[in-house]
Design a protein around this nucleic acid. Structure first.
Length: 705
DNA sequence: TATGCGTAGT
């Protein structure tokens, strides 16, 4: 710096020299802030013998733009002489930190406002999705303060929020459009996945700059159309660093790390964002060593760089290393700490997650939601609810997490209550509820909710279709399944692997072999789940020949069967009484495929042996198995005992069952029936008393003989 | 030299 070490001499020069000293240091603070070197900026600020209002404004801006909003506010509160820019800068800080209420508070306190102030507040509302409040401000704004920036903020806000009509109306009304106005419209299309509209608009544009091209590249990347993205990238007249990073991320998101790296290596103008993008690409691929290497090589690190590395270690399960990085991080922001919290949560270390969470103390919505989701995922719904209640500002995701928690723990009534209590719902809210119903076997509710969602104007996505089709499969509701298939095709999900697999399963379980195979045939690249869907579908339908045929085809094609495959085939054998085939397959599963059987496999085997009356063998298998027998296994055994009138083994099974499922009445009914058939009426009576004592309500449809 | 509208990184 020019004046470094010259303070004594400058002092003697007097007032003008001091002013230029302050001027230069103000510039330096801003420059350092722009490349994320906040500590250095703060050091200069603190060491300055004289500061003016611009000095304070610069420092406030540096803090605010780097996510340190409370530091910004502290400075704002204690600065001696605020001007209009100070207020605007502070509002801008709240805008970047998504704190609309705080921004509005300042806005209302201001005695004087300029065009910056209004534009900032409008942008604030628009970013928050509050289109109406933004419009109110725009209409209140005096004509002479309505400059291009305000108009552009309105157009961009409308477009981003998907209100293309309103955006277009203002756009057409606007007299002196700038390139920003055009790009604002274009961004509306590209950010909302409307690429055909976007393309048409792009072609009609009067003028284009590099931002217009970048928007197109980004839109295609988002749409998963990497070929078009690359085409536009190559055609961009003078690609800048943003163009390159956008394309790099496109490659990275599609797992094309080599091409991403090539782009990075060819970049002559790397900045902290391009470094972070490349590091994130390796983190995405779980190539943590390469990520770390780049991290050590990069000239400037910011909070995002640190957070990415912490996330990287979390992804590969190296929590200790993540902790160390967090400890070394110079200024620990909420994002980095939230990354660490997620790490603990993923490893079920809820107490440690909670510790960091309590330490942060700031009302950061993402952080709160991470904690709530954590409790929900491990079934600790009470704690999740507790946090939700205490949460200062909830968003839709907070409620969605709660719905998920209840769905996970089978409390669908409470999930519905939360769903009804929350205000605005998004696609995730609906999907969580629908998949909750499906996973809890409430298939009719799932389909009804699907219908309500469509009536509410929400477009079903992959998750909705999978849940819906799965429900149809379980209800054997072919007609609804057919209708869903039509919507799938119309919505452009016909090529989605997950949806296709659900379709296969639906058709197979509804007994439509040809339709299932038709969907299967038209999948670009089937996976093991596609095969399993066919196999399990035919198995549940009792079609053992078809099940085995598909299984053999799968093996011939070299696809490795997994646990689910064997469950499917074994259950087909068990339903059809193919005992030897089942025993052979079970043996080959453990001996040839070296697979450790899980509870479902054993349940199939017990069922298989039990149905054939080979109760002793079944019982022996249960006693010798390596895992703890589940209720499903004892239930299968008890059922077989009931069929073959084996009181001895049946009692053992019933005793185990009554401990595992004390409230399930069907277990007592089976034992009671068994006793009744053996003429043990005293036992029948005592079973009935036991059942009442344990609060097992008799289900309708079961009868006492 | 400090604040607003359109593009990239957790």
């Amino acid at each position: 710096m020019k004046n470094k070490g010259m303070i004594p001499r400058l002092k003697s020069i007097g007032e003008s020299g001091r002013r230029s000293q302050v001027f230069n240091q103000n510039v330096k603070i801003t420059q350092l802030g722009k490349c994320g070197r906040i500590e250095e900026a703060a050091r200069i600020f603190n060491q300055m013998p004289h500061r003016n209002t611009v000095t304070y404004n610069s420092m406030i801006s540096v803090y605010a733009k780097n996510g340190r909003i409370s530091d910004a506010r502290n400075l704002f509160d204690k600065m001696p002489r605020k001007n209009l820019v100070s207020w605007n800068t502070m509002i801008a800080g709240y805008l970047h930190g998504d704190k609309v209420d705080k921004a509005r508070e300042l806005f209302d306190k201001m005695t004087q406002r300029d065009d910056f102030t209004w534009t900032l507040m409008i942008t604030c509302y628009m970013r928050n999705g509050d289109v109406e409040k933004a419009r109110v401000l725009f209409d209140l704004l005096p004509e002479k303060k309505k400059n291009r920036a305000c108009w552009n903020a309105m157009i961009a806000g409308y477009a981003k929020n998907g209100c293309f009509g309103d955006a277009r109306k203002l756009f057409d009304e606007m007299e002196d459009k700038s390139i920003v106005s055009w790009n604002s419209m274009l961004a509306g299309y590209t950010h909302n996945g409307e690429m055909s509209l976007g393309l048409r608009f792009f072609e009609e544009m009067d003028e284009r700059d590099v931002v217009s091209w970048n928007l197109m590249v980004d839109g295609f990347v988002e749409a998963g159309d990497l070929d078009s993205a690359w085409k536009f990238f190559r055609r961009t007249p003078d690609p800048n660093i943003v163009s390159k990073v956008t394309m790099l991320c496109g490659f990275s998101r599609n797992g094309r790390i080599t091409e991403a790296r090539r782009l990075f290596d060819e970049m002559e103008d790397k900045n902290v964002v391009s470094w972070n993008a490349m590091i994130a690409a390796y983190v995405q691929q779980c190539q943590i060593d390469e990520a770390i290497w780049l991290f050590t090589q990069m000239p400037e690190k910011n909070a995002v760089s640190w957070t990415t590395i912490i996330n990287g270690y979390v992804r590969v399960g190296k929590l200790h290393e993540a902790e160390q990085v967090l400890n070394k991080m110079p200024y620990k922001n909420v994002g980095a700490q939230t990354a660490m919290i997620s790490g603990y949560i993923q490893n079920r270390r809820m107490d440690e997650a909670r510790q960091i969470f309590e330490k942060i103390g700031t009302p950061d919505v993402v952080c709160w939601n991470t904690m709530i989701a954590g409790y929900a995922h491990c079934g600790r719904v009470d704690e999740a609810l507790n946090l939700l209640k205490r949460m200062p500002q909830k968003n839709i995701a907070s409620w969605n997490n709660m719905i998920f928690g209840y769905a996970q723990t089978g409390q669908m009534d409470k999930a519905v209550a939360v769903f009804e209590e929350m205000g605005e719902k998004n696609l995730v809210s609906w999907n969580t509820l629908i998949s909750g119903f499906t996973q809890n076997g409430l298939f009719t509710n799932a389909l009804t909710t699907f219908l309500l969602m469509v009536q509410d104007g929400k477009k079903p996505d992959q998750s909705t279709f999978v849940s819906g089709l799965c429900s149809c499969a379980n209800l054997a509701a072919l007609e609804i399944g057919n209708q869903l298939h039509q919507i799938v095709v119309k919505s452009g999900y016909a090529n989605d692997l997950f949806v296709s697999n659900a379709l296969i399963s639906m058709y197979a379980k509804c007994g439509r072999i040809l339709s299932a195979e038709y969907v299967f045939k038209y999948i670009d690249s089937v996976d093991v789940i596609s095969w399993n869907s066919l196999i399990s579908g035919y198995a549940s339908n009792g079609n053992v020949e078809k099940t085995v045929k598909i299984f053999q085809e799968m093996t011939v094609k070299g696809v490795k069967p997994d646990e689910v495959t064997f469950i499917g085939v074994l259950s087909a054998y068990s339903h059809s009484g193919f005992v030897d085939e089942g025993l052979n397959l079970f043996r080959s599963m453990t001996e040839e495929h070296l697979m450790e059987p899980v509870a479902e496999h054993y349940a199939c085997m017990v069922c298989l042996l039990g149905r054939a009356g080979r109760l002793e063998e079944a019982f022996q298998m249960v006693r010798e198995m390596k895992i703890k027998p589940t209720a499903g296994i004892w239930g299968a055994l008890l059922y077989a005992c009931r069929v073959y009138g084996n009181l001895e083994i049946g009692r053992v099974a019933a005793e185990k069952l009554s401990k595992l499922e004390p409230h399930k009445s069907s277990n007592y009914v089976l034992l009671s029936n068994l006793n009744a058939e053996a003429g043990r009426w005293d036992e029948v009576e005592s079973t009935r008393i036991l059942m009442t004592d344990r609060g097992a309500e008799k289900q309708p449809g079961w009868s006492w003989i």
